[in-house]
């Protein structure tokens, strides 16, 4: 089978001895027209893979930063089908950068798993990370729909995940694994790099999949530190906070957000 975009991305980075820089933004924040130009600008600034948030009214695992981003996107009624359309537009110019949808299950329930997976694959999406869908609940219909359409399912691992369960989650996931570096919601406390390194040693006993680390990466310094122990650095709240500060100057969002991406890239590659 032809290697998919996510696997190809991590393979290429591995050959170069580099780590993936994975920015997260909420689709439609602060307005639908901003998202696609922002995605291109982040890629130009050194992003390797984009996690694109599906707006949801009740993002329980997220902090106030992402909750407010969802509220801004929902003011313009950004639906899941609109998010899919944004990725389709993005693909007109960029066929290489993987795009992973991140969000909550309920909007997907409304489309139906099979319809979602078919439409997502057709739009050029590569995988999905559904925060409130652990492997136990994904087993069966959701997994089958994703696999049948060549989409990866990315799962979370947490500091509280016990070793026996790490193995189970590693076996269920594909594409990469997302290690949540702190107990808490997005945008909360700073991470402890040594604790992350210790946990990733355990994770790597059970998988050859790349492991990205997110939550608590706030600046160039923490991005650099995480890149020394992980395969990917996931950064969200810092970028979304910048977007929030530019709601009145939306034309500046792609340049100013990608400037942060470039700064992180430089630090990681140094």
């Amino acid at each position: 089978m032809e290697m998919n975009r996510i696997a190809a991305c991590f393979e290429r980075l591995k050959e170069q001895g580099r780590q993936a820089l994975i920015p997260y933004v909420t689709a439609g924040d602060p307005a639908p027209g901003v998202t696609v130009p922002l995605m291109h600008a982040m890629v130009d600034a050194g992003a390797d893979l984009i996690e694109l948030g599906i707006p949801f009214s009740d993002p329980m695992a997220d902090g106030p930063t992402i909750q407010l981003a969802c509220e801004r996107a929902l003011e313009h009624n950004t639906r899941l089908i609109d998010v899919l359309a944004m990725v389709k537009t993005f693909r007109e110019k960029d066929q290489q950068t993987p795009v992973v949808l991140m969000g909550y299950l309920n909007p997907i329930e409304v489309l139906g798993y099979t319809s979602f997976a078919e439409q997502a694959a057709a739009a050029g999406i590569d995988g999905a990370l559904i925060v409130d869908l652990p492997p136990e609940e994904a087993e069966g219909e959701f997994d089958n729909a994703m696999k049948a359409n060549g989409l990866d399912t990315i799962y979370l691992l947490a500091p509280t995940t016990e070793e026996s369960r790490i193995e189970q989650v590693c076996n269920a996931g594909s594409g990469y694994l997302y290690y949540v570096s702190v107990k808490g919601v997005t945008g909360s406390a700073s991470l402890d790099v040594q604790a992350v390194a210790d946990k990733l040693d355990v994770v790597r006993k059970y998988t050859n999949l790349p492991v990205g680390v997110g939550f608590g990466i706030k600046d160039a310094e923490s991005a650099k530190a995480v890149s020394e122990v992980a395969d990917g650095v996931i950064v969200g709240s810092v970028l979304v906070n910048k977007i929030a500060s530019l709601v009145e100057q939306q034309e500046d969002i792609p340049a100013q957000v990608s400037a942060i991406v470039a700064e992180l890239r430089t630090a990681m590659d140094a």
């Binding site: 329980m60 695992a61 299950l105 925060v131 652990p134 979370l156 500091p159 509280t160 995940t161 369960r165």
Partner: peptide, 11 residues
């Protein structure tokens, strides 16, 4: 069911 983020699964 149990539709929660991974951090809560152990608890």
């Amino acid at each position: 069911g149990r539709f929660v983020s991974e951090t809560l699964m152990a608890a």
